[in-house]
Amino acid sequence: MTPHNELRLLPWSGPDGKPCFLSTDDTNGYLSRLADNIEAIQLGLAAKLLDHASEELSNEEADPEELRSLATELTEALRDTLRVAESRGHRLLAPGPDTRADDTMGPTLPAAAFG
């Protein structure tokens, strides 16, 4: 069995907003578990923020400054969610130690999915 040593995109940024990566074979190590927990928190917060945004957008008397703040928070949540999706997607498509070469193709999307 060969070790699976792919770089994992972590759910936080480093200095100057640069991405952080983890190189490990241990998916149950401290940093891997910490990243999993932070991803779960980020996704949970994004879901709550989406619910809040839906409520605010249906309020015809919503304060423009509050809507601007909400848009900023939604942008941050979307950025975090996309980072989680990228990280998880990369790990799903990476061949594992027992994966045959012809099994590494991920699901395909129809061309119409891209506009």
Rank of each mutant, 00 (worst) to 15 (best):
I38V: 15
H4R: 15
P19L: 04
F114D: 03
G29A: 14
P97H: 13
G106C: 02
T24I: 04
R91F: 04
Y30N: 11
P97E: 15
E6R: 13
A71F: 07
L7W: 12
N37I: 01
I38N: 01
A111N: 05
D26Q: 10
P3E: 04
T104W: 07
T2M: 10
N59T: 00
P110R: 09
G14S: 05
E60C: 02
R83Y: 03
L7C: 07
I38A: 09
A77L: 01
G17H: 04
T108G: 04
L74D: 02
E76H: 11
K18V: 05
P95M: 08
D102L: 06
S13A: 14
P107E: 06
L67F: 04
K18Y: 04
L49D: 02
G29Y: 08
R79A: 12
E6T: 06
H52D: 14
A53H: 07
L93W: 02
T72H: 11
R68H: 03
D98F: 09
A85P: 00
H52R: 15
D16M: 12
C20S: 10
N28W: 02
N59E: 06
D98P: 01
A101M: 07
S58V: 07
R88L: 14
K48Q: 09
D98Y: 12
A35F: 06
E86V: 09
P15M: 11
G89A: 05
N28D: 14
A46G: 06
L92H: 12
A46E: 01
T2V: 12
H4M: 12
A85V: 10
N5G: 08
L93M: 13
A35K: 05
N28R: 13
R91C: 06
L31H: 08
V84A: 15
K18F: 03
P11Y: 02
N28F: 07
P97D: 13
S32T: 09
A112L: 12
A40S: 15
D102N: 07
G96K: 14
A53I: 00
T81L: 05
T104F: 02
T75E: 08
A77R: 05
M1S: 11
D63Y: 00
L43Y: 00
E56G: 02
E60D: 15
S13L: 15
S69H: 11
A94V: 07
A53G: 05
A94M: 12
T99I: 02
D25N: 09
H52I: 07
A35V: 09
R8N: 06
R79P: 00
P107T: 07
N28P: 00
L109V: 04
G14A: 01
H90G: 05
L78V: 13
E61H: 13
D98I: 13
A46M: 02
L49W: 00
L78Y: 06
P3N: 09
G115F: 05
M1V: 14
E76N: 12
L78Q: 10
P19T: 03
Q42D: 12
D63V: 01
E86G: 07
A40D: 11
L31R: 10
E66L: 11
A101W: 13
P110I: 05
R33K: 14
L109W: 09
P95Y: 10
A113H: 09
T108S: 11
R83G: 03
A47Q: 12
P15I: 12
F21C: 02
E60H: 13
